[in-house]
Design a protein around this nucleic acid. Structure first.
Length: 208
DNA sequence: ACGGGGATCGGCT
DNA sequence: GCCGATCCCCGTA
């Protein structure tokens, strides 16, 4: 049970992004413990990335992005919340958006937060994932290095052959940058089937 | 104080 | 695929 620390988050954002794939989010909430493994992320860079929320400087909304690596940046979008983990160094404004996870423990609790018919609909999108875990703006600025209610555990390094890269979803600027990473063919990845080169349902090779 | 836009989602065609 | 809901945030005045 190894909590990811400053040595993990304090690296290049692209590297942190694809190495977060396969790792485990752990949340100790009043309703109980909820965990799930990350299957899709996007990198948002400090430089030459107009789609990054930090691109136009610090504001009350994005100030967590300019905090130390390992901080959570949570913002509201339409009717949902999205969560990011700060990367690299304090003050530069880079982060990784967590877009989807495969639920493990606490699925009953997640279903209370987000009533859906199929488990596949529980956390296969950035807003869905936050709703299932009960993450809102009160989690903005949470320090994943020391927090007692939320952290990320190292599970394994995924081989490059299991990772696919595409442009990011839902943005209007910097569409050319290939900064979305996901576990190829995994059933909890967001979006359409054409994103997957492996048609059948895929899950983890080894379950810890 | 006002107006526009958005790292979404879900329903409908 | 397209579109509307919905609301917080930010730039402008």
């Amino acid at each position: 049970m190894h909590r990811l620390g400053k040595d993990f988050y304090g690296r290049s954002t692209e590297e942190v992004a694809f190495q977060l794939l396969g790792q485990r989010i752990v949340l100790d909430a009043p309703v109980g413990r909820m965990t799930g493994r990350i299957v899709e992320v996007e990198a948002y860079l400090a430089k030459n990335d107009p789609a990054c929320h930090a691109a136009r400087g610090i504001t009350p909304r994005n100030k967590s992005m300019f905090g130390p690596p390992g901080l959570l940046y949570v913002y509201s979008l339409h009717t949902r919340y999205c969560m990011n983990v700060v990367t690299e160094d304090s003050g530069i404004g880079a982060a990784v958006l967590i877009r989807a996870m495969e639920p493990e423990q606490g699925i009953e609790a997640m279903l209370q937060n987000r009533p859906v018919q199929s488990p596949r609909e529980l956390s296969n999108g950035p807003g869905k994932l936050c709703q299932a875990l009960g993450i809102d703006r009160t989690y903005d600025g949470e320090d994943l290095l020391v927090s007692h209610r939320m952290w990320i555990e190292f599970v394994e390094h995924l081989p490059q052959s299991k990772i696919r890269t595409t442009s990011r979803i839902g943005i209007s600027q910097a569409r050319d940058l290939q900064l979305r990473y996901f576990v190829d063919g995994h059933q909890f990845v967001s979006g359409r089937a054409c994103d997957h080169s492996i048609p059948r349902k895929w899950t983890w090779q080894r379950i810890p």
